[in-house]
Computed example of a mutant assay.
Amino acid sequence: MGKNLVGNHIRTLRFNQGEMTQQQLADKAGVTRQTIVALEKGNYSPSLELAFRIAQVFDLPLEAVFYYGDNPKL
């Protein structure tokens, strides 16, 4: 299919939340740490459900955590 077009600000948001670890985020979102690693590297696009769960962890709207294409607004 080509390059993953869904990007995210997860790494930045984790550090803005008191340097939350990947494991802490994974536990709060109900996934493995490896899933968070893959998301941050851009190797994995989350399901819609997971995207909403991660946004809820940060108490942010979905669009503040994830973006589509080459338009990373933060």
Rank of each mutant, 00 (worst) to 15 (best):
F15N: 13
P72T: 09
K28C: 14
K28W: 06
L50H: 04
S47G: 04
Q17C: 15
T32Y: 10
S47P: 01
Q56W: 02
K3D: 14
V37H: 12
H9P: 00
F15S: 13
L48R: 14
E19F: 15
N71S: 15
A64Q: 13
V57R: 03
P72I: 03
Q56S: 11
S47L: 06
H9L: 08
G7L: 03
I54K: 08
V37C: 09
K41H: 05
L5C: 06
D27S: 08
Y44L: 08
L60H: 07
A38N: 15
K73L: 06
A51H: 04
L5Y: 06
M1T: 09
E63T: 06
E49Y: 15
S45N: 08
V37W: 08
R53Y: 01
G30C: 10
K3N: 09
V57N: 10
Y68G: 13
I36D: 08
N43V: 10
L39Q: 06
I36V: 10
N43D: 11
T21V: 10
A55S: 04
A26L: 00
D70E: 09
K73Y: 06
A51I: 03
L5P: 10
I10C: 12
S45I: 03
F66R: 03
P72Q: 08
L25D: 03
L62K: 10
L39N: 02
A51C: 01
Q17I: 14
L13D: 02
H9R: 09
Q22T: 01
M1C: 12
K3V: 13
I54Y: 05
A29F: 01
Q17W: 11
E63F: 14
G2Q: 09
V57S: 07
A55V: 01
L39C: 02
Q56A: 14
N16C: 14
A64G: 09
Q34W: 05
V65Q: 03
F58K: 05
D70L: 05
V6R: 07
Y68I: 11
Q24N: 11
K41F: 03
T12I: 15
